[in-house]
């Protein structure tokens, strides 16, 4: 566990300004704020449609103290790719000065794992020098909590409701980091705003990577998950400590768990505070728990093998 005071070493400058209209206790806005702190000023952001886009850019106001563009829902990676290639040639032709500028594409889980997957895959495959961050709050929160392919098994959403004939989401969560890894890109990592130092280290590494880097940040959503706004950080921690969302990185194909967990907490500790899991039967939870433990062991094996 890092020192309590270590967070003070993080940059004081803010690039995601106050006055944005995210819900109180928004884990995604917090993650965006932490990420932009680390990326600093020399960055250009291409944002997909979604909560963060809407809350940060109600014309004529903007929370972005760095250059920022929003085009559409499914194409953040492609827009970022265009910016990156545009900057590269303008610098090469001497039309603008040579300097390191991080090009960041950001999207929610829908803009990454569903509608944005094709553009993302294309950008990763073509080896654009961009950083793609998926802020995963596990459903379409901007439109009112509809399920995505990143919604975990069992979670109740407005389009995978817990009813008498169906207990929430019927399919397991899509493993986006694994899809990113499968593209053979140099850096993939998971992160959480509940672990700001781990997140900062990964953002730094990702930004320094030549070629595409992919970060997958679990973004706790009080409104969509049915928790009080002050429980955001706690839920982020429980997700990690229960093995639901392990924090790891994959550098050039080598796995490493960055926040080790000695003994996984029961998944019920993570589920219990959340309204979206409240309907689950103990047998279902046991089944989910089994699955989490298997995946955790698998990840540990991979991580041990390379370390």
């Amino acid at each position: 566990m890092p020192s309590l005071y270590a967070v003070k070493t993080l940059p004081s400058q803010e690039y995601f300004a106050s006055g944005h209209r995210a819900c109180p206790g928004c884990g995604e806005a917090l993650a965006v704020r932490q990420v932009q702190k680390i990326l600093g000023r020399n960055v250009i952001v291409a944002s997909a449609t979604g909560c963060m886009e809407i809350v940060s850019s109600p014309f004529p106001l903007s929370s972005w103290e760095v250059p920022w563009i929003h085009v559409a829902f499914e194409n953040a990676a492609a827009v970022a790719a265009g910016i990156e290639k545009g900057l590269e040639i303008l610098q090469r032709k001497g039309k603008i000065k040579k300097q390191k500028i991080t090009v960041l594409a950001m999207a929610g889980d829908g803009g990454t794992a569903d509608i944005g997957l094709q553009a993302l895959s294309g950008a990763l495959e073509r080896r654009h020098n961009i950083l793609f961050i998926c802020y995963d709050n596990e459903a379409y929160m901007n439109t009112g909590v509809q399920r995505s392919s990143s919604t975990p098994f069992g979670a109740s959403t407005t389009t995978s409701p817990a009813g008498t004939h169906q207990a929430g989401q019927l399919t397991p969560k899509k493993n986006m980091p694994a899809i990113a890894v499968a593209h053979g890109i140099p850096y993939v990592a998971t992160a959480s705003a509940s672990y700001p130092l781990d997140l900062a280290a990964k953002v730094r590494k990702a930004a320094a990577t030549r070629g595409p880097a992919y970060l997958h940040i679990l973004s706790v959503c009080p409104s969509g998950w049915g928790i009080p706004g002050d429980a955001t950080i706690k839920l982020g921690r429980l997700a990690v400590q229960s093995g639901v969302f392990p924090l790891y990185e994959v550098q050039n194909g080598k796995y490493k768990i960055t926040v080790p967990v000695q003994e996984l907490l029961p998944v019920q500790a993570y589920f219990q505070p959340q309204r979206r899991f409240r309907h689950l039967h103990p047998e279902t939870i046991e089944q989910i728990s089994q699955d989490i433990r298997e995946k955790w062991q698998e990840l540990k094996k991979r991580s041990d093998k390379t370390n």
Binding site: S18, G19, R21, S57, P58, L61, S62
Partner: peptide
């Protein structure tokens, strides 16, 4: 294109 030239001006909105 409704571009915003003074970004960060959301600070004028008191949440």
């Amino acid at each position: 294109g409704c571009l915003i030239t003074n970004p960060g001006n959301s600070k004028t909105y008191y949440t």
